[in-house]
Design a protein around this nucleic acid. Sequence first.
DNA 1: GGGGTGTCTGGAAGCGCTTCCATGCCGCGT
DNA 2: ACGCGGCATGGAAGCGCTTCCAGACACCCC
Lengths: 347, 347
Amino acid sequence: MEALPDTPPKSGQPATIAGVAARAGVGLATVSRVVNGHPNVAGPTRERVLAAILELDYRPSSVARNLSLRRTFVIGVVVPFFTSDSAVERVRGIVAGLEASPYDLALFDVESPDRRRRAFDMFGRGDRADGLLAVSLVPPDAELARLEAAQIPCVLVDAPHPSLPCVVSDDVAGGEVATRYLLDLGHRRIAFVGDKPPDRFRFRSSRDRTEGYLRALARAGLERQPGYVRQGTQSRHVARSIAEELLRLPEPPTAIFAASDTQALGVLEAARDLGIRVPDELSVVGFDDIEAASYVGLTTVRQPLFESGRRGAELLLQALAGEPFAVRTETLPLELVVRRSTGPRKR
Amino acid sequence: MEALPDTPPKSGQPATIAGVAARAGVGLATVSRVVNGHPNVAGPTRERVLAAILELDYRPSSVARNLSLRRTFVIGVVVPFFTSDSAVERVRGIVAGLEASPYDLALFDVESPDRRRRAFDMFGRGDRADGLLAVSLVPPDAELARLEAAQIPCVLVDAPHPSLPCVVSDDVAGGEVATRYLLDLGHRRIAFVGDKPPDRFRFRSSRDRTEGYLRALARAGLERQPGYVRQGTQSRHVARSIAEELLRLPEPPTAIFAASDTQALGVLEAARDLGIRVPDELSVVGFDDIEAASYVGLTTVRQPLFESGRRGAELLLQALAGEPFAVRTETLPLELVVRRSTGPRKR
DNA sequence: GGGGTGTCTGGAAGCGCTTCCATGCCGCGT
DNA sequence: ACGCGGCATGGAAGCGCTTCCAGACACCCC
């Protein structure tokens, strides 16, 4: 790799391959060969071209190259960015996984349904990205069909789909483990704070975690308490007010399992506001193990967020490399991390 | 806006403008006109074209269009993604600011210097993005020159530059405010935990905050204590061990000002590990006011992170729209947020 | 010495779009 | 009736690159 000059030339328009060719006194094809490291270019010729490139501060137009090659060297990442801290951590994993590859990353936040539609719309053409990574949401089938038609591979992270490679964790099991842990600590009045049921695109993790929760209760022979399952949005504040309601119940829970750490943090806040001591009077378990969890000492179900992104990127890269990839869902391990927010039932 | 069919046609390759033209029995130019909403297309013709588009599930190739138009409709965002939570929040602001625009966002994490070089390298050509947003770092001058030559506007968020529009906050003032607050509480032994001095690209916020800290001390007539200014990386763990050292000093500080909330959280952890009570025995002030700060009750200097991103996007959009934009730095207000991590000196 | 067999090179087509320009047509005014 | 402005339309060039293909040449072996 040659060092580039530190000051680009004054020229108005950026140099094109034709300019370089002219300057070096060779044909376009030859310049292209040199640029792309093809063999069969005579030493001296190569030198001349290289010199011209340097002098002109030439850099190939990626757009033109894309058009010609029918590849973009970008990987699209569709992610509900705002909604959760965990999504960010996953994206970090993706970035890391792409690090060594020639692919760039185009990020699409799809908070609004409109934006979501638009995102998939663009990728559908197959010329915005060579591959797609969807985080915490499953693309509508119509778009999936388009993607397939356009031959652009897609892998899902934290979302299941029968005909796509997915990297997920077993949310049902996670919910069950968390709840069982609470049961083992002697708790019987265990409430749940989660998200609203998923819409057509959105994560179903919360639902699955609810299921795990219910299953654990059932296995323990406990009846489901009607007011104990609450649903809001993936936000600390909403979780907080929900938790307040819960804690003001005539028979308040002695433990709360939240479908995400973000929500668990809201629960902790509510407890603090109400002067309820954690874990003495209330045990709280979250889900995800985001950064914040460790410094507030939240017991949680750790999910390898970063790793899920990294692995997703890896799978996509493989697909892009033409390796036959199994269309199967890969389940990452969950792990209960016990910290200071849980303890035995005391009353 | 017509509703698109829910199932794309089975065809192998995506439809091109030529296909649509043939199908509708018109010329390419006409299809292009219809697609781009030009006037001067007869009603019935337009209908036929529209029908063909629907039938073929045609969507224009953005690459081809980019090449022809010499625009990409993407905005590049260069950001040290991993290093700080605050950067993420800024990116969120950027996303929000771009929401209503036709521009997409391409995110470049530039953790490694290599990656950084590469990022600017690609943008230098001017065909990867129509505009550039650099977060918390200042691009090397050589690249800036290229950007200018390629006519691609660039605005900096959380980084200063004499010849570019910037959205910053007054870090020196912020550092001073935080420190003065501590002084007012009666503290005299005030330590500082910050980042290493900036390299050629990297944020200088920490340095400026240090300066504010020193200035406040000086104004109070306090001598700078040699071991009290420590520098590590923008990471909780590093800050934590630095803080431990600090707190084990023969004359430990009674207050610590950290250059970022992330680092402040590390400091809090160190205190907890050492059994030092906050705020009774140690006051801690952070900087940024990230989410986490509020739920651990960290006193901090609030910086409008989200807003800085949003505003940066706004400025860039203006530039892109051809509005003459003043090359001046815009300083966003800072605000001291007092929470539970600070209190009067007690010993 | 002639016909391979290679290496090196340039021309030109093509990627899918936009847009300038020329053409054909209509209706209007005189 | 005829000419002209303007609307509607298609052809073709061009955006900057890759790559197929063919030509030029050198070299080698029989």
